[in-house]
Simulated assay, not measured.
Amino acid sequence: MGSKFEKLNRLRESLRESNHDFRASTQLFSSLDVAKIDRDMDLAGRGKERGEANQPPKNTKNLDDVEHAIIERVEDEKKASYHTLEDSLQLLGGRLAGLDFEEQFGLIRQANAASVSDFKASVAVGLDELHGLRRALNDAEKEHSWFKEKHGLVRAARVQHGVAHVFRLSLLLFLFLIETAMNGSFLAKGNEQGFFGGILEAAAFSFINIGAALLLAVFCARLVTHRSIFGKLVGIGSIIFYVALAVTINLALAHYREVSGTLADGAGAEVIRNLRADPAGLTDVKSWLLFGIGLMFSLFAFIDGWFVFDPYPG
């Protein structure tokens, strides 16, 4: 792309270059300073003296010395201005000759032909690209019309893009980090590695808690809005399965917090036994708080995942 219209660019640069070493300017001829001539020649004083002497006489037709001096002074200024004009005309004539319009016109014609060729080549490439894009657009419109007709849809697709899409993805990451940090502070009590170990265990629980909610919302639960009965049943079953899974995961996390504080080994097996025997048998209010926080974050992730794409699957 950088070589296109190269001749036209070179012509423009050559026209912008000056063929002389002077700065372009427009200087007017200076106006004749009559007051200065009056002061230099003392015309007022000499006129008063000659007037008192009644010179020159009224009937004289020839110019006197003072008038001749004034005329000579003005003529000198006129000659100096004329010489300046002649010099300027010669200088400008040389500059005009140096412009070489014929050569510039030839360069313009060459640049014009090259630019037209480059433009036609660009148009041909653009038409090829537009043809492919138009064909893809027509196929997408046909597929879109077929999909809406098949599923009985009237509304337009609700596709998240731009800032809204970035916000939803950022919200998922924010939920994961916040839940990990909060759960880590609760699990650090019974972990041998302290807060760092609690953070690692909390990250694993958060990944499963939020990841399962997101996957079920995106790929399964949205089927509840499907037109087919089978799809609706799958969607309803997915929602029920999500609720059971979210409650189980967060109850297991709460039981693990209580058990890990008293047992160094075998905490996982003890959690499974407690879940089977008495799932709601949490004895510490912090464990219930941990359960509620995890369930709340899981629900947020499920709702956010539901609307990441269009609510209608397909």
Results as ranks from 00 to 15, higher is better:
49 E>S: 13
190 G>F: 04
160 Q>E: 10
245 L>Q: 00
157 A>V: 07
236 I>Y: 10
197 G>F: 01
267 A>L: 01
154 V>T: 12
30 S>G: 14
273 R>K: 15
49 E>Y: 07
223 L>M: 10
242 Y>F: 07
263 L>M: 12
96 L>H: 03
131 H>W: 12
37 I>T: 08
67 E>C: 10
194 G>P: 00
212 A>K: 03
195 F>L: 15
225 T>R: 11
307 F>V: 01
11 L>E: 03
272 I>V: 15
44 A>S: 12
145 S>M: 09
87 D>H: 10
241 F>A: 07
206 S>N: 00
235 G>S: 04
145 S>K: 11
299 L>W: 00
134 R>S: 12
295 L>A: 07
59 N>W: 02
67 E>N: 14
128 D>R: 11
14 S>F: 07
200 L>H: 00
257 R>M: 08
135 R>K: 13
210 I>H: 04
202 A>Y: 01
311 P>H: 04
259 V>H: 05
161 H>F: 09
217 A>G: 02
85 L>W: 13
239 I>W: 00
10 R>V: 09
158 R>P: 02
255 H>R: 01
266 G>H: 07
54 N>A: 15
183 N>C: 07
224 V>T: 04
276 R>M: 14
134 R>A: 09
47 G>E: 11
133 L>C: 06
299 L>P: 00
99 L>S: 03
172 L>V: 03
263 L>D: 02
135 R>I: 09
273 R>I: 08
273 R>Y: 12
305 G>A: 04
256 Y>P: 00
123 V>T: 14
188 A>R: 00
189 K>L: 10
307 F>N: 02
225 T>F: 13
306 W>H: 00
132 G>D: 07
35 A>P: 06
138 N>S: 14
52 E>V: 14
284 D>C: 04
72 E>P: 07
45 G>Q: 08
11 L>M: 13
126 G>A: 13
1 M>G: 12
213 A>L: 05
10 R>M: 11
